[in-house]
Simulated assay, not measured.
Amino acid sequence: MKWVASFAGVGFLKPAPGTWGSLAALPVAYGIILLGGFWLLLALSVVVFVIGLKATESLTKTGDHDPSWIVIDEVVGQWIALFPVAYGAGMMGVEVWRLWPGWVSGFVLFRLFDIWKPWLVGRADARGDAMGVMLDDVIAGVFAAVVSIVLAGLAHGFLM
């Protein structure tokens, strides 16, 4: 279970294990997108969420409800932040790396929302249980995805 929750041990890297977990999620997401595009990334995000929830529940029964080495939640949140990149690349029929600004904004915005914990992110985190551990990153990922879409619209002149 520790292997799953720490994303193959990445969560034990110091400092800032959450950032390391988010960074490690990027090349894995890239591979997933190359293999099956947006829909595979979406499906695996759901699967990893469920597996991560079970692992987090098991590992936090006693003691700290959100140890810093549990980063499987960051992986799911980071993948969600990349949904616009995966979907956009598939929709436009371009190589996913060509949407590199979306990769950068998805990463930076996800980390920002995950650390800052505004509004619903903070409310989910305040639950103090395994679902809260997972949900705050899911919501941070959704926020990052939405802001990335807005930024892409501004950059491409759609929202001007």
Score class of each variant (00 low, 15 high):
16 A>Q: 00
73 D>Y: 12
75 V>P: 07
125 D>R: 08
158 F>K: 12
32 I>E: 03
45 S>Q: 02
3 W>E: 04
92 M>C: 00
98 R>I: 12
156 H>T: 15
83 F>I: 05
7 F>G: 02
2 K>H: 13
149 I>G: 01
87 Y>C: 00
50 V>W: 09
5 A>E: 05
152 A>M: 14
84 P>Y: 06
34 L>G: 11
96 V>I: 13
136 D>H: 11
137 D>H: 14
108 V>F: 15
24 A>R: 10
52 G>Y: 02
30 Y>M: 10
91 M>C: 00
27 P>I: 07
143 F>A: 11
131 M>E: 08
16 A>S: 11
146 V>M: 11
38 F>T: 00
80 I>M: 01
80 I>G: 06
121 V>K: 06
151 L>H: 09
125 D>G: 04
129 D>F: 06
137 D>R: 14
44 L>T: 13
117 K>N: 04
159 L>Q: 02
130 A>F: 13
65 H>Q: 05
57 E>C: 00
76 V>W: 10
28 V>Q: 08
78 Q>S: 13
6 S>E: 06
24 A>G: 04
46 V>L: 15
123 R>D: 09
135 L>K: 10
12 F>S: 11
97 W>E: 09
85 V>L: 09
154 L>K: 15
82 L>W: 02
55 A>Y: 01
100 W>C: 03
102 G>V: 01
119 W>H: 04
123 R>E: 15
126 A>L: 06
51 I>H: 02
155 A>G: 15
139 I>P: 00
127 R>T: 14
133 V>G: 05
23 L>M: 14
71 V>Q: 14
8 A>S: 13
139 I>E: 02
109 L>A: 14
67 P>R: 09
45 S>N: 11
136 D>V: 03
92 M>V: 02
22 S>D: 11
150 V>M: 06
40 L>V: 11
140 A>T: 04
75 V>T: 09
101 P>K: 05
131 M>W: 15
124 A>F: 08
65 H>T: 13
83 F>Y: 14
17 P>V: 07
155 A>N: 03
1 M>N: 04
99 L>Y: 13
136 D>N: 09
108 V>K: 10
81 A>F: 02
67 P>D: 08
42 L>F: 14
143 F>W: 03
53 L>D: 01
44 L>C: 12
125 D>N: 15
155 A>D: 01
59 L>T: 10
132 G>H: 10
131 M>S: 10
3 W>P: 01
157 G>W: 09
54 K>P: 00
128 G>P: 02
110 F>H: 05
39 W>G: 02
129 D>G: 04
112 L>P: 00
38 F>Y: 08
65 H>L: 01
37 G>A: 10
10 V>W: 07
84 P>C: 15
106 G>M: 07
42 L>P: 01
100 W>Q: 03
134 M>K: 01
127 R>H: 03
41 L>F: 07
117 K>S: 07
68 S>Y: 02
157 G>S: 11
49 F>E: 07
12 F>N: 15
11 G>V: 10
131 M>I: 14
112 L>I: 15
6 S>H: 05
125 D>P: 04
74 E>Q: 13
59 L>A: 11
103 W>M: 06
35 L>Q: 05
118 P>N: 12
54 K>N: 09
111 R>W: 12
56 T>Q: 08
102 G>Q: 00
93 G>H: 07
85 V>G: 06
